[in-house]
Design a protein around this nucleic acid. Structure first.
Lengths: 149, 149
DNA sequence: CTTGTTGCAAAGCGTTTGCACCTCA
DNA sequence: TGAGGTGCAAACGCTTTGCAACAAG
């Protein structure tokens, strides 16, 4: 279906879509390849990227995140903290994971599951609703943060 | 546990929490009682409420929605359209429903389900994550909007 | 009376956009 | 060289806040 995403393969993907391969885009892409498990906000990407290229503008970061999400390299998430968060999309788009969001430290961990597939079948039948996508989040406290806030 | 929510009982709830029972708050509350199945944005509430009380300010609407959500009368939702949407919370907080969001017309319907309870047990065990709340949304097309956008 | 509440306008915050300059292909 | 990309600053849309006037208890 789809091979593993390397820096090279993603560059090709950009070229195929006739996006130019600018240094800014390469730097941002690198940042995600070096933070495969992170859920970074635009501002966070901006900070990380600025170290290597202080000239870069925040607007460019936003524009690049848009593009990378559009071509399926990144996944755009909303964890309810008032900003979008992007994560590197490993490979198979279709079978995605859910998020455990810690109300204590804000950390986000991931959780794979198949249960929703069967639930979708029920919904389609019962509600006559054609499902394209779903989004499941759990809020609570991670092991480190324990019980109380 | 908790009785059915009437206008009177909610007013008492406000008083108990030492919130004052202003005409503005009453009007906003009425609006939700007359739109039990809606998922209203602050702006929409503002428009509805203005008919009965043109003096009311948008800031007051926001402040009242905050309060009503805080005491469990309303549920605050984020359907990814860039604004918060509030719905009347029928009764039992703990066992809540999920949303089917139509990408065509933006309508939101609801879906009750128990499946997530068992899933939570798995997560607690496997990830050592104490779950307080969850949020499940399905995106797709409703019966009216059919297949294509 | 006195503390909470209101309306207004201004500020806040994440994100987008207009524009002149730049640069990849 | 020309279409697309960049940086900057201004604009945007939703929400929050500071403040003086007001009203519920």
């Amino acid at each position: 279906m789809e091979e593993v995403k390397t820096f090279e393969s993603i560059c090709n993907l950009l070229r195929n879509r006739s996006y130019k391969l600018t240094p800014q885009r390469q730097t941002i892409l690198q940042t995600f390849l070096e933070n495969v498990d992170s859920h970074l906000s635009a501002e966070e990407v901006y900070m990380l990227v600025k170290h290597q290229n202080p000239e870069i503008g925040l607007a460019t970061v936003y524009r690049t995140l848009d593009i990378l999400a559009e071509i399926g390299i990144l996944l755009k998430n909303d964890f309810g903290d008032g900003r979008s968060r992007y994560e590197f999309s490993r490979q198979d788009e279709h079978h995605h994971h859910h998020h455990l969001i810690c109300l204590g430290c804000g950390s986000v961990s991931e959780f794979d599951d198949d249960l929703l597939e069967s639930l979708e079948a029920v919904i389609i039948k019962r509600n006559h609703f054609k499902i394209l996508d779903h989004d499941l989040k759990f809020y609570g406290y991670c092991e480190k943060c324990g019980e109380a806030p």
